[in-house]
Design a protein around this nucleic acid. Structure first.
Lengths: 344, 344
DNA sequence: CCACGTGGTTCGCGCTCAAGC
DNA sequence: GGCTTGAGCGCGAACCACGTG
C-alpha cells in the first residue's frame, strides 16, 4: 500500500507514472512521448490514465538533454512593443504552435553589442532555430555576431535572418527595392514631383534598398529626391527628423517618405505639430502597412507587407529541414490612402 | 597529442572544457557556473581560457535538470501584435533580462481552451514563473485553468496574474475602477452628459471594473449612461459595436467610452466611416494610453497606465521570493486629448 | 591528531534509446 | 512481438582524498 496517488511536492515524473501504471519507464515513455514502437492497448490505457490522474507533463529540459535536441525556437527582435515586430512575432508564434515548438524571445534594443550577448545566452538553450528579426548581419558591427552565429550553426542550430541575409544563414526576405520602386512610381503618377526621404543610416540594407527602390521608381516617373535625411527606425527618430526638416523651407506639395510606417507616423505627428497639414500640404508615405496606418487620419499610404506571414515563413525556414530560399516570395502591394491625395 | 582544440560537431560540453584545461569536471563547473567554493587563480584562468576558446556555453537544459530549476519565465498573452500586450511584454522582457532569465511566450488568441492547453505545455518547461496577462481566472471558463495553475504551483512555480487576481496566484493589478471613475468625473466636468459604453462580456473583471468605475464617476458628476454595449477587447470588436450603434440615433455630443484604447480606436474609425466626426460630434475615450493614441487625430482621451512598468512588476512578482502584493500601486493618470473637446 | 582548504570522484536529475529477454 | 533492463545525455552537488598548519 504505497502512496501511489500522492499529488506530490514537485512535479510528477515519468517514473511516478510508470509506477502508478505498473509498467516500466520505457513503456511509459513510449506511450506518452512519441516513439515508432507500439505498445499494447491495455498498457497504453493504463499509462494514459495514470498520467492524466497525476497531471503528468514531460519535463522538457530532461527530454532535451536526453534527446540532444530541444523544442525551442529563439526569436530576437529590436523592440517587441513596436508593431512591426509584434506582427512578425505573431506569425512566428503561430507557426511554432503548429509545430509543437516553444518560442523564447529576446530584445536587442537595437544595440549590436547586446545582440551578441543575447545570441550567446540563447545558445545555452540549444534552440533548434534562431530567428534574427532586427540585425545587420553585415558591416563592422556584425563582426562579433558572425562568430556567435557560426558557433550556433556548428552546434546544429539553424539561423534565419529576416531581411537581407548574409553568409550561411537562411533568410526570409521582402522585396524592399521592388516594393518601394512601385510606391515611388505610383506617387509620381499621382502628381508628386518633390520628395524627401527619411531613412536610417547608410549601410543598413533594409533602409538602403527601400531608398534605392523609391529613388528609382520616383525619378523614373519624373520626380526628384530633394533630400535624404538619416534617422532611424523608430517613431521618435521620424518625428525628430521631420521636425528639424520643417524648421527649414518645405514647400506645400512636398512628399516625405518614411523608411517604415513607424517612422512615417512620427513624421505625420511632427508635420502637424509644426502647424502644417498632412495630405494636400505635406504628403507622407511609409512602408510595411502596420495596423495603425489604417486607423489614423488621414490614412497612411504605404506598401503592404504581410508581416505575419513573414514571421510564419521565418519559423519554417528555421525548422523545416528541406526549405528552399525565397520559396513563396511574399506579395507586396502599394496602398494609397489619404496621406497622399492626388495632386492636380 | 589529442585533438583538444577541435571546434567539434555539436556544442562544446563542460567535459570538453575540463579536458582542454586539464582539470576535472567539478573544477570547470565551479569556475564557469557559480559555486560557493573557491578555485585557485591558476586553474581558474586555464578554465576560462579553454571555455573562451571553445566557445563554450552551458547547456541550460542540462543545468535545469541537474539543478531541478530552470531560468525560464513563461508569459501568456492574448495577442502579441496588440500594442497593449506588446508594451507589457516589453517590461517583462526587460526585467527578465536584468535577472538573467529567459522568457518564453505563448499566445492564447483569447481562447480559454487554448489557454489551458498552453499552460499545460509550458508547464513542461518547468518555468520558475508563469505570467498570465490575459485570462479570466474566475468564472466558468476558468475551471480547467485553475487545475493547471494549481498543478503548476504544486510544482514549485509561481503564478502571476496581471489584473484582478484570483485564488492563490499573486497578482499585479491596476486600479481600473478608480482610474475610470476619475475619467468619468473629468469628462462630466468637461460638459458631457450622455455616454455609451462599449465593454466586454459581463464577468470579465477588467471590463466590469472599468464599467463600474466609469459609471460611478460619470453619474456622480451628473452624467447618464445611456447604454452599455457588449463587444470584446479588440479593435474590430469596437468597430463593429460602434458601427451598429450608429445605425441608430446617436445625438451629437454623445460620448462613447471604449473599455480599452484598442477598442476606442476601432470606435473612432467606425464613427468616421459612419460619416460622423470624432470630437465635437461624437466624443470617444479609452483606457490604457497605448502609444498609438498619441499619434492619431484627434488624440485619444484616456487613462494612462504604465504598461511597461506593469510588465516589469509582473516579472518581479514571478521571481522575487519576498514580494508583497500591491507593492507600488501603479499611478494612473487621466489624459484628455482632442477626442473629447470641452463641451459648452 | 585534527581542522581546514582545495581538487577529484561519483551519483543522480528525468528522460531516451539500443540492446536484451 | 512486446516489454524490460541498462547505459548515457550534460550537468550539479554531495562526498571523498589529499595536502597543509
Amino acid at each position: 500500500m504505497s502512496d501511489t496517488t500522492a499529488p506530490a511536492r514537485g512535479a510528477a515524473t515519468l517514473h511516478d507514472v510508470a509506477r502508478a501504471a505498473g509498467v516500466s519507464l520505457a513503456t511509459a515513455s513510449r506511450v506518452l512521448n512519441g516513439s515508432t514502437r507500439k505498445v499494447a492497448e491495455s498498457y497504453r490505457e493504463r499509462v494514459e490514465a495514470a498520467a492524466e490522474q497525476l497531471g503528468y507533463t514531460a519535463n522538457l529540459s530532461a527530454q532535451a538533454t536526453a534527446r540532444g535536441t530541444s523544442a525551442i525556437v529563439a526569436l530576437l527582435v529590436a523592440d517587441i512593443a513596436d508593431p512591426y515586430f509584434g506582427q512578425l512575432a505573431s506569425g512566428v508564434a503561430r507557426g511554432a504552435d503548429e509545430a509543437g515548438l516553444v518560442v523564447t524571445i529576446a530584445i536587442t534594443e537595437r544595440d549590436p553589442q547586446r545582440e551578441v550577448k543575447l545570441v550567446r545566452a540563447l545558445r545555452g538553450q540549444r534552440p533548434r532555430g534562431l530567428i534574427l528579426a532586427a540585425s545587420r548581419v553585415e558591416g563592422p558591427d556584425a563582426v562579433g555576431l558572425q562568430g556567435e552565429l557560426d558557433a550556433f550553426s556548428n552546434m546544429g542550430g539553424r539561423v534565419v535572418v529576416v531581411g537581407p541575409g548574409g553568409g550561411s544563414a537562411r533568410s526570409v526576405a521582402v522585396d524592399n527595392r521592388g516594393g518601394s520602386a512601385a510606391l515611388g512610381a505610383e506617387l509620381a503618377d499621382l502628381g508628386y514631383r518633390d520628395a524627401i526621404v527619411v531613412a536610417a543610416s547608410e549601410g543598413i540594407r533594409t533602409s538602403d534598398d527601400r531608398l534605392a527602390g523609391f529613388t528609382e521608381g520616383f525619378t523614373a516617373a519624373g520626380g526628384v529626391i530633394r533630400e535624404v535625411r538619416r534617422a532611424g527606425f523608430t517613431r521618435d527618430a521620424g518625428y525628430a527628423a521631420a521636425s528639424d526638416l520643417l524648421t527649414g523651407d518645405v514647400p506645400a506639395g512636398t512628399l516625405i517618405f518614411g523608411i517604415s510606417d513607424v517612422v512615417a507616423i512620427g513624421i505625420m505627428s511632427a508635420v502637424r505639430d509644426a502647424g502644417r497639414q498632412v495630405g494636400a500640404d505635406i504628403a507622407v508615405a511609409g512602408f510595411d502597412d502596420i495596423a495603425t496606418g489604417r486607423d489614423i487620419r488621414p490614412g497612411l499610404t504605404t506598401v503592404r507587407v504581410p508581416l505575419e506571414d513573414l514571421g510564419y515563413q521565418a519559423l519554417h525556414a528555421a525548422t523545416d529541414p528541406e526549405w528552399t530560399p525565397g520559396e513563396p516570395q511574399l506579395p507586396l502591394e502599394v496602398i494609397v490612402r489619404g496621406s497622399t491625395p492626388p495632386r492636380g
